[in-house]
Design a protein around this nucleic acid. Sequence first.
DNA 1: ACTGAATGTAAGTCATGACTTACCGTTAGT
DNA 2: ACTAACGGTAAGTCATGACTTACATTCAGT
Lengths: 107, 107
Amino acid sequence: MAYGTALAVLADPTRRQVFERLRGGPRPVNIIAHGLPVSRPAVSQHLKVLKDAGLVEERSEGVRRLYSLRREGLMELREWLDSFWGDALDAFKLEAERSYRLKKRDK
Amino acid sequence: MAYGTALAVLADPTRRQVFERLRGGPRPVNIIAHGLPVSRPAVSQHLKVLKDAGLVEERSEGVRRLYSLRREGLMELREWLDSFWGDALDAFKLEAERSYRLKKRDK
DNA sequence: ACTGAATGTAAGTCATGACTTACCGTTAGT
DNA sequence: ACTAACGGTAAGTCATGACTTACATTCAGT
C-alpha cells in the first residue's frame, strides 16, 4: 500500500515544492530552503518525511547532505492510477504518448 | 494545479476507500457506506469533497443519488507523475506495458 | 396526507501534523 | 583549537480537517 504513503506525503503543497526542487538534480538543504516560504528546519522535516517514504535519497558529502529524487518511489502510485483504466488502458497509453510527443516538439 | 487537489483529496485513506468502491460502477451513498468504519454522514462529506475535486459525479435518481467515478479527474495527476520521467519516459512506458501484459495474462 | 427510507447539512469535538524557535552535533578553514 | 557554516532534533503552538450526533429535506408508497 505504498501508494497511500506517496499520496499522503505529496499532498502537502510545501513538501511538494521541496520535492519538485529536486528535479534539477541533487541539492543541499540550504539551497532547497532558499526562497521557500518556510524555515530551514521545516524543510529538513519535510525531507525526512520524503526520505522515509522512499521518494528521496540522501548522500553525505562533507558537511553537506545532498538530497535527490527517487523516481521509483512514484512507481506504485503510478500503477495504482493506471489501474483505474481497465480495458481502456491501451487507448489511454496511446493518448499519453501522443501528448508527450507534442510537448517534446514545441520545446 | 488540479493535480494538487487530487493529491490532497486522495490522501485520506477513508476517502480513498470511498473512491475505490466506485470502481464497480455507480452506487448510492447507502451502499458505499455499508461496511466502512465511519458513519454515513461522513461518507456523504467525503463524496462532496470528491465531487468538488472533479473525481466523482452525481446523478439523482428518485430519492437516491448515484455516485460514479470521473477518471478524467485523475488525468492531470497522471500527467504530473509522467513529468518526472524526462527522457527516460519512453523506456518506462515499455516497462509499464510489459507489467500490464503480465497482469492481464494470469487473470 | 402520512410514514419511512435515503441523504445532505450544522455544530461541535478531537487528533494530527505543519510550523516556529532554540539548541546540539559535525565538518572545514584559518 | 576556534569559529563559522551546515543541518538535524526537541518542544511547544496552532490551524485544519475528519469524525460524531442531531436535525432538515425530499421523494415513494399506502
